[in-house]
């Protein structure tokens, strides 16, 4: 154990809170244990069982993100809110960039879009880095649409491949990627993206934004081009730090996307559970909000030059299990 690294992580957490507090955001401690966790097809919650004093039993799960609770609170009238606390994900590798319990920051604004999220992220990261003693250069962080990134790094015209599995499969073959009969369009996209785009983003802090609509179940569509959704990811040194959306508030559209996700979970042989109806009921009152999830441990890794998340954890996963 390196006590300097443990202290450094603690300091990063404090600086993040200070930034949002000074910007007039309200920190909310949303529940960690919930009845209906997020159902993203590729995330697995950790399930548990709770009993009331009379023995009544409830199935519960540790949250994979505070998103549903935060959106219900937006719908209840809160604005400019953040949550910074542990989130839990099952079945992920215990490697240098993952711990099954990690610190996640989420913040939301009403009447906002990707531009506000990218601005908040840039200002917060620059503030934390400067106060930590590792300032970023003054220059604005880079902003690239996914379409521009695919063109620049993989020399592919994404417009021509959207919603066309055969065209994407052909692109994969030409880029020396395997094509399996069960690979979805998204899988094929990821093979090229993970091989040729993500590793080449480099040290310049970069926002990728406007993702194919199939890859953004909780995002509003881009009014200029509805084949893309208003989602952004933030990278430094090819490490993904954040993922945000201009949040979908249309309950009908949301229900149909949840049903598609359930169908995908089912086809992957994964468990499905009912849609969170309290969340669905609240959704239309949320307005045009925007929100983003940010990996605080990963920011601490970057600022300390640490290769492994385990070095920053007071008691890393391999010493807990």
């Amino acid at each position: 154990m390196n006590p300097d690294l443990i202290r450094a992580r603690s300091q990063v957490v404090k600086l993040v809170r200070r930034y949002f507090d000074e910007q007039g955001f309200l920190e909310l401690q949303t529940p960690r244990l919930v009845g209906v966790p997020g159902q993203e097809p590729h995330l697995e919650p950790m399930w548990s069982e709770m009993k009331e004093a009379d023995g009544t039993s409830h199935r519960g799960a540790l949250i994979t993100s505070p998103e549903y609770a935060m959106k219900r609170l937006l719908a209840a009238g809160f604005d400019k809110i953040y949550d910074l606390g542990p989130c839990f994900r099952n079945g992920e590798p215990w490697d240098g960039t993952h711990d099954p319990e990690f610190l996640m920051l989420e913040w939301y604004r009403r009447d906002a879009g990707l531009e506000e999220l990218m601005r908040d992220t840039e200002n917060m990261v620059k503030f934390v880095a400067k106060e930590f003693g590792k300032p970023f250069p003054e220059a604005a962080f880079r902003r690239l649409t996914v379409k521009e990134a695919m063109q620049q790094y993989a020399n592919l015209d994404l417009d021509a491949l959207l919603e066309n599995r055969e065209a994407m499969a052909q692109a994969c073959r030409e880029h020396h990627q395997t094509v399996g009969e069960h690979d979805t369009w998204d899988d094929l996209f990821f093979k090229i993206f993970l091989s040729e785009v993500e590793p080449k983003l480099g040290e310049v802090p970069t926002f990728l934004y406007n993702y194919p609509v199939s890859m953004a179940a909780l995002a509003r569509k881009d009014p200029q081009d509805p084949r893309y959704a208003l989602r952004t990811e933030f990278y430094i040194g090819s490490l993904e730090l954040a993922n945000g959306f201009a949040e979908l508030s249309d309950a009908t559209e949301q229900r149909s996307r949840f049903e598609e996700e359930q169908a995908l979970r089912k086809s992957l042989g994964k468990e499905i559970w009912p849609i969170d109806e309290r969340f669905m009921q609240a959704l239309p009152n949320m307005g045009n909000a925007a929100g983003i999830a940010f990996g605080v441990d990963r920011l601490a890794m970057l600022l300390t030059g640490t290769q492994s998340i385990s070095d920053l954890m007071p008691i890393p996963v391999r010493e807990r299990f």
Binding site: H42, E92, D186, F190, L194, E240
Partner: peptide
């Protein structure tokens, strides 16, 4: 790689 938004690779 576990992008979370996609399958494991």
């Amino acid at each position: 790689i576990n992008p979370g938004k996609g399958a494991a690779f």
